[in-house]
Design a binder for these strands. Structure first.
Lengths: 340, 340
DNA sequence: GTGAAAGCGCTAACAA
DNA sequence: TTGTTAGCGCTTTCAC
């Protein structure tokens, strides 16, 4: 009796397909991989065999020889509470997902919440299971970019990365320009005691938005600057603090819509009218947030989904071996609603 | 000159480790895989070589021979807009992620939004890249459970699956009991024109919650039952409709907190007092929603994160080859706040 | 255009 | 305890 052309997992192997089609394994492989050097006859026979057997290539075997996996890891190392609360993450993943799909790449989402997770993720990234990685919302102490660099894994970043060899590929929003825009608008409205609620200052996104604020009000005293964590709760607490230590303020620029929503809550609680007493501007322009706050939020618009899409394209370009593309800085714009 | 013990990707192979440690590849492999049949001396030598070289096993090669990947796919086939808006998904993934991590399994999240995505996911699941799959929030027409069944991929479901061979493993909440509880509470409060806003009726979770409602009010007329889509917007529109076609209603049971939040919005717009004119009960008890609505939501509590965790454990048990565990139905309980 | 054969990097018998 | 050997399922020269 002949050797079984079925793998140990019970699924048909290329061997089985070749046998049924009456060709060699090599020819069957050529058909599967879409090589042009196959006769129409062989191709038809192999295709028939594939569908009759329900053959699906064993990806481990393939990637062992090709050294590729056609899969890309997306690393999100942020407390889960934020990932599923802040629309930013969803929009980013949506864009990445679509971009990757368009390039024929499978997206694998790795959520890293703890040092053990980071360890596991590092092993995964190093293990040759993916051709490249996408990382975003990185903090200064995140170890994964260094891991990727060491193992030579092609990586693209959402937001400017902390590692800086000058060769990192990234897609960023014009955070500084956007912030400058927002704060200029407040100033032009005649506000002169303008405060800001920043994100965590171990992220460039926060640093850049604060820099934009300072471009307009370089001499702002410390009482008007409070760092929070991009969450609604954080924004609310920060606003309480601002109100306590600088009661004369007449405007606040929040580095995210969610924090702005929290600030609005605090202001309502304190009986301050928005924008009458205090003007509020956010950053992000998330549909789910900015249009639903009371009053609706004046904010800086950025197209996060597009950023995710471009990020995926950038990495795909690198993976195809094409000349390294340029990093991208995406434009932002002010959207005026009722809060300022 | 000797053959290079470095793989084509430039990373050291087991061969290199073995050579540096002065042992055979087999012994090196034993150390890596944690076999006890190795002398302390060899073990030390191999471990030293591993860390000196920064060796990481090639997972494709390993899984080609072991037929395992130690990775599990989590399939979420729901419009992305819901996935990142409804806290349910985040909580579930968080629980799964922790459960899988505790079992030493890598989680791979596959988001399926379109038929092409489903196609790609099907190929991925069939390709031997994962040892098992977790699927939840399934609709009747989702093709992936059947794919998993056909290729014999161990799978566990969040919520009762539509495929029914009697052998499916699942973790579900006591949806019917919870709904019954909620509606009984409303009846006991003296409400007699009780309406309900259901989820999509191609999901068991919606069917079961509606069944619980009917357990208490079997003769409810059609005007008091409106199907929505689990979103806040859907809940709002559904409430508008209810108000129009059954203006006498004095209570409404919503099959999710998000829909309840939408209903509250509609009621406020129509100038109806909650709970004075109309009592509202939700389902889920999401921290991020139920405690923040105005008024805070009376709702049915379920521990979604725990469900995710148990789901992961169930699958891990199967993957270890242990006797198939029992499916789980998790308890729910009524949490009374201000809306009813 | 096609097949034979080599080998990707690893684990797991089987011997020693 | 250790090494030798035989593959896992696939792609890809290299001849024909």
């Amino acid at each position: 009796m002949a050797e079984s052309p079925y793998g140990r997992a019970g699924r048909p192997t290329l061997e089985a397909v070749a046998e049924l089609a009456g060709v060699s394994r090599a020819t069957a492989s050529r058909v599967i991989t879409g090589s042009p050097r196959v006769s129409a006859k062989s191709r038809a026979a192999v295709e028939a065999a594939v569908s009759e057997l329900g053959y699906v290539p064993n990806l481990a075997a393939r990637s062992l020889v090709t050294q590729r996996t056609d899969a890309v890891a997306v690393v999100v190392s942020e407390p889960e509470s934020r990932v599923f609360t802040d629309p930013f993450f969803g929009a980013m993943i949506r864009g990445i997902s679509r971009g990757l799909a368009a390039e024929g790449l499978q997206m694998l989402l790795l959520m890293v919440q703890s040092p053990e997770d980071a360890e596991r993720a590092a092993r995964f990234l190093s293990g040759g299971h993916v051709d490249g990685a996408l990382m975003y919302s990185l903090h200064r102490s995140d170890p994964l970019p260094e891991v990727a660099r060491q193992v030579g894994l092609p990586t693209a970043y959402g937001g400017r990365p902390w590692t800086n060899t000058g060769t990192e590929l990234y897609v960023d929003a014009d955070n500084r320009g956007g912030a400058r825009n927002a704060v200029t608008y407040l100033r032009d409205q005649g506000r002169h005691a303008v405060a800001t609620i920043t994100g965590p200052l171990d992220q460039f996104v926060s640093i850049d938005r604060l820099a934009g604020f300072r471009d307009v009000f370089p001499d702002t005293r410390d009482e008007l600057i409070v760092a929070a964590d991009f969450t609604q709760e954080g924004g609310e607490v920060a606003m309480d603090l601002l109100l306590a230590q600088a009661p004369e303020l007449d405007a606040v620029f929040c580095a995210s819509d969610l924090m702005a929503a929290g600030a609005l809550r605090s202001l309502r609680r304190h009986g301050r009218d928005v924008p009458g007493d205090i003007a509020v501007v956010g950053f992000d322009d998330h549909d789910q947030v900015a249009r639903w706050t009371d009053p609706p939020l004046t904010t800086i618009h950025q197209d996060v989904e597009l950023m995710g899409h471009e990020l995926a394209r950038l990495l795909a370009t690198v993976l195809r071996g094409e000349p390294t593309p340029e990093s991208l800085v995406m434009p932002t714009r002010l959207v005026v609603r009722a809060s300022a």
